[in-house]
Computed example of a mutant assay.
Amino acid sequence: MPYEPPTHSVERSLRATLGARTVAGVDEVGRGAWAGPVTVCAAVTGLRRAPEGLTDSKLITPKRRARLAAVLGDWVTSYALGHASPEEIDDLGMTAALRLAAVRALEGLPERPDAVILDGKHNYLGGTWRVRTVIKGDQSCVAVAAASVIAKVQRDTAMAELGPEYAPFAFADNAGYPSPVHRAALEELGPTPLHRMSWSYLDALPRWQHLKKVRQPVESGEQLGFDF
């Protein structure tokens, strides 16, 4: 299906309105999985022409994603990954876990960005970061699209490497997301240490639902941050 390639229009806008010299695109993967971490990539691309075929990782086949990620690793100015573990997701909730992973990614960059383009409608980052949220930013913004592809390939690879240890769950195929094979393994064997124990999938597993963890609300005194 044809699609419009991503552009630098948001980056240019942030440079013009905020004087932002370094702009990072941020995207996540793993939010809807039953197992594994949530992973966030922060990528800085400058205003260089994007590699051919760059777009939202979900619109690219696995083979093309892997090839593109290999190109992006050398093409981007810099990138860093941040993760929040299943335990952190259970303890904090997804929004706070996303924030934790995003901050880890941004703080892993060699230089603190002057502004951040965050994929989606909600600014889950908070703190003192200058954030521009962009719906479908992984399709329209070069830096966010690059972050999308890198995050997806890195997380999928990490989950696949766990395949031999957790073979019945077929993590190499589903990356911890819901699938018939994944559900069947859960029904028979129960959750692994990689599973999120506060999630509702356990409600449909009578044999294991007693393991479900009830998360206590976490109070936060963080600033809401800036949203431009």
Rank of each mutant, 00 (worst) to 15 (best):
M1W: 13
E4M: 11
H8P: 02
V10K: 07
E11W: 12
T17P: 08
L18E: 13
R21I: 13
A24T: 09
G25H: 03
E28K: 04
G32Y: 07
G32N: 10
A33Y: 02
W34C: 00
A35E: 02
G36I: 03
P37C: 11
V40R: 07
C41W: 11
A42E: 05
A43E: 02
L47Y: 09
R49S: 15
R49M: 13
A50Q: 15
E52I: 14
K58Y: 04
K58T: 03
D74K: 15
S78F: 07
Y79I: 01
Y79M: 00
Y79P: 04
G82L: 10
E87P: 02
I89Q: 05
D91P: 00
L92S: 05
G93A: 01
T95N: 06
A97K: 07
A101R: 06
R104E: 10
A105D: 02
L109N: 12
R112W: 07
R112I: 12
D114P: 00
V116S: 09
V116T: 13
L118Q: 08
L118C: 03
D119K: 09
K121F: 13
H122T: 10
G127L: 10
T128Q: 07
V131F: 03
T133S: 05
V134K: 05
I135L: 08
D138L: 05
D138E: 06
V142Y: 04
V144K: 08
A145K: 00
I150G: 06
M159W: 12
P164G: 13
E165G: 01
F169Q: 06
F169K: 04
F171A: 05
A175T: 10
A175Q: 01
P180F: 09
V181Q: 10
V181L: 04
V181R: 15
V181E: 09
H182L: 06
A184E: 15
E188S: 06
L189P: 02
P193C: 05
H195M: 04
R196W: 00
A204S: 05
K212E: 00
K213C: 09
Q216P: 02
P217K: 05
V218Q: 15
S220I: 03
G221M: 10
Q223I: 12
F226S: 15
D227N: 15
F228I: 08
